[in-house]
Design a protein around this nucleic acid. Sequence first.
DNA 1: AATTTAGTTCTCAAAATTATAAACCAAAGA
DNA 2: TCTTTGGTTTATAATTTTGAGAACTAAATT
Lengths: 155, 155
Amino acid sequence: MTKLTSEQKQLIEKIGIYHEQQGFPPATGRIIGLLYVSDRPHLSFEEIIDTLNISKSAASNALNLLLQMRLIEYITFPGDRKRYFGALLENWHEEVISKMDYILAFSKLLRKTNELRGSANPDMNEKVLERIEFLEFLSREVPALLDKWLKERKK
Amino acid sequence: MTKLTSEQKQLIEKIGIYHEQQGFPPATGRIIGLLYVSDRPHLSFEEIIDTLNISKSAASNALNLLLQMRLIEYITFPGDRKRYFGALLENWHEEVISKMDYILAFSKLLRKTNELRGSANPDMNEKVLERIEFLEFLSREVPALLDKWLKERKK
DNA sequence: AATTTAGTTCTCAAAATTATAAACCAAAGA
DNA sequence: TCTTTGGTTTATAATTTTGAGAACTAAATT
């Protein structure tokens, strides 16, 4: 079992809190934190529950959630029944894209409010429309920016 | 009290759910929804609790939260003790900026993970760095994009 | 002075979330 | 076949969140 320094522990908690604020359960956030902080790229189920002092079921649920969201992965070794879990470091591209989809969905709701209000309040329609159009703009531009940035960087 | 159509009610719920997912309590999300859906730009405390069927305390807490976050405002009229609450439609600019600050704070945590890991896992450092740099890039570019977009639009 | 109004605050209960502990299960090893 | 391992699932308990209802307060009205 990996013994953590207090600095590592603190950072895990901070990353945990960040993820809680993004809607993850606490234990789940801590697991992400651990997988980012750990020197070793992959940790076993047992190592995770021992270093974080969480129950098997909390770990099982959290790991399955994170696997399903494609935020972590696991690797295996021949002749070893354990799975070794690690952060999936390449998937943040998709995360960015899907966050933009979310924003776009909200802008559609805003559009609908303008529709339903009709012409009862033109000033409001206009202000809401400004926000709608920026959200649409953003959800177009950010993925484009990402592509451009990646191409730029790979050279 | 404003009587809502079922279409309006549905849209309020959807906007409510969106805001719940952003971390707001349900009643708070519904109030935002109502203030966006309503034909009238400002509604009284009483109108809000009557149309949404929520308690005074839920409304009081939600409204104060939203006021404090500068997502709503209220206006008053001479000789009328009531406050009339409405969505604050101009403040989404600041919201965008502060969301970027949040992202930047997370990138700082990621940077710290790279530091703590040291050179134990260079491949991981590199992949994490890529993400860090994109997050930094984004938190620089998005406000710039917003400025540009606003100037472009005002003409 | 007594009452109404426009909320606020407090107490408490319901509901939802999260995690623990223990039972369970399938595969592997002895 | 019996046991161990690596989890998963199933109660169940603890904690947190949320909101209702009633009591309260300060200003305004009668």
